[in-house]
Computed example of a mutant assay.
Amino acid sequence: MSAAEAGGVFRRAQGRTLDAFPAEQEREWKGPFYFIQGADPQFGLMKAWSTGDCDNGGDEWEQEIRLTEQAIQAINKLNPKPRFFVLCGDLIHAMPGIKAVFSGHYHRNAGGTYQNMDVVVSSAIGCQLGNDTHGVRVVVVTADKIVHRYYSLDELSERGIEGDLMDLMKEK
């Protein structure tokens, strides 16, 4: 059983709705509330910054992990509790052995390679600004490689993930 199932701690969106904020309860103003906005945990930047080499040296995350845990502990102690927590900005600065960066926001498929790192932009589930279909990208990570493929929503619904990708996920 996952933590979400056990304690209902994590909320998931379904049917374009987040059940943490039911429409019947949220239609009318019920008074002031607050939320917490955090930004830029940027794992790896503190070492890179301290060594003066921001293009490298992001292979240690201990300080950022400690600070993020401190933030979570402080927020969990608050009374009354915040309505929700939003984390924005740069989540990581560097990751040891990073081979690919996956992003969106361009609303079409794109990408390239920069200094032996693949940059992969996935098209949108929603509004398309190019000729790509509405879809998602399936990314399979093994010890040796990263393989990714864009699927239209229709393809994924009708056929699922292709056999060669499924084979990569089998334990060896």
Rank of each mutant, 00 (worst) to 15 (best):
G8P: 03
G31D: 05
E26F: 08
G44D: 02
E64F: 03
G89K: 01
E28M: 14
I65D: 09
R27S: 13
F21H: 07
A110T: 15
D19M: 14
M46L: 12
F102S: 00
K170E: 12
G52L: 04
V120E: 03
G57M: 15
G130P: 02
T51L: 10
A110E: 13
E69H: 10
T133V: 14
W49R: 14
G7Y: 09
T133M: 13
Q63T: 13
G38N: 09
A39K: 09
V120R: 02
A13R: 09
T142Y: 01
V119F: 10
R16L: 13
E64S: 03
G44T: 02
R27A: 13
R16Q: 11
G163E: 12
N109A: 11
V140H: 00
E171W: 11
F21S: 06
Q73L: 15
G163Y: 06
A39Q: 11
V141M: 03
A100S: 04
Q73V: 11
S50N: 13
M117P: 07
E162V: 00
Q37W: 05
R149F: 00
A110D: 13
P41C: 10
V86W: 08
L156Q: 01
G130T: 03
Q14S: 09
P32C: 04
R12P: 04
G58D: 02
L78H: 06
T51S: 08
G135C: 01
C54K: 12
E64V: 01
D55H: 12
H148S: 05
C88Q: 11
V119H: 12
V140T: 02
R137M: 03
W61I: 07
E62C: 07
R108E: 09
W29G: 15
S2E: 13
I75L: 04
G38E: 07
R27Q: 12
H93G: 01
S103G: 11
I92H: 07
C127G: 08
L78I: 06
A48M: 03
A4W: 14
Y114K: 13
G163P: 04
K77T: 14
D164Y: 02
E5P: 11
M1D: 14
D59Y: 06
T68H: 07
L78N: 05
G135E: 00
Q14K: 11
P80F: 05
D132A: 04
T68V: 05
V120K: 01
G135I: 00
P41V: 09
Q37Y: 06
I72V: 11
D167Q: 14
E64T: 01
